[in-house]
Simulated scan of single mutants.
Amino acid sequence: MSLSSSRRRHRAALLALAAALTVAAPIAEARPGGGGSVGSRGSRTYTAPSATPTAPGGGMTMQRSQTAPSPGMNAPGMQAPGRRGGFMGGLLGAGLLGALLGAGFFGGLGGIASMIGLLLQVALVIGVVMLALRFFRRRNEPAAASYARTGPGTGGPMGGPDRGPMGGGMAPGGMSSGGVGAAPRAPQMRQVQIGPNDFQAFERLLGDIQDAYSREDRVTLSNLATPEMVGYFEEELRANASRGVINRITDVKLLQGDLAEAWGEDRTDYATVAMRYALKDVTVERGSGRVVSTNDPEATELWTFARQPGRGWVLSAIQQTK
Rank of each mutant, 00 (worst) to 15 (best):
L120C: 13
G257V: 01
N74W: 14
V38L: 12
P172T: 04
V245K: 02
M275P: 00
R139V: 13
T47A: 10
G90I: 04
M73Y: 09
G231L: 01
R84E: 13
I209D: 00
R9C: 07
G117P: 01
F106K: 03
A182L: 09
R8Y: 12
T52H: 00
G173S: 09
L221D: 02
W303N: 06
Q308T: 14
P297E: 07
F202L: 02
M175P: 05
T283W: 04
A186P: 09
P71H: 08
L255D: 15
R307G: 00
G102A: 08
Q256M: 09
A123M: 10
W263M: 08
R276F: 04
P157K: 05
M166R: 08
K253C: 08
L21F: 13
A225G: 07
L259P: 00
A262R: 01
G104N: 04
T294E: 15
S40V: 07
M189S: 14
G102H: 02
I116G: 13
Y270K: 01
E236R: 06
Q319Y: 00
A148E: 15
A186V: 11
L14I: 14
A274D: 02
I112G: 10
S288I: 05
A20N: 10
A68L: 07
E261C: 01
F199G: 04
L100S: 06
G231M: 01
R83S: 14
S2H: 11
K253R: 15
L92W: 08
A241H: 09
F199C: 04
T54I: 09
S288C: 06
D198P: 02
E228L: 02
N197A: 14
A143E: 14
R190Y: 11
S65W: 01
L14C: 13
F199N: 06
L21R: 08
A306G: 06
I194T: 11
S293I: 06
V282K: 03
N247I: 04
R276M: 07
L15M: 15
S293D: 09
G86E: 10
M73C: 14
P196F: 09
R9M: 13
G90T: 08
V122M: 09
Y213P: 02
G264D: 03
M175T: 14
T272A: 09
S176E: 11
M130L: 15
A24I: 11
E301T: 05
K322M: 14
G207A: 12
T283N: 06
G244Y: 10
I249V: 10
A25G: 10
P142L: 06
D258Y: 07
G93T: 09
M62W: 01
A99P: 01
G155C: 05
L131I: 11
K322P: 02
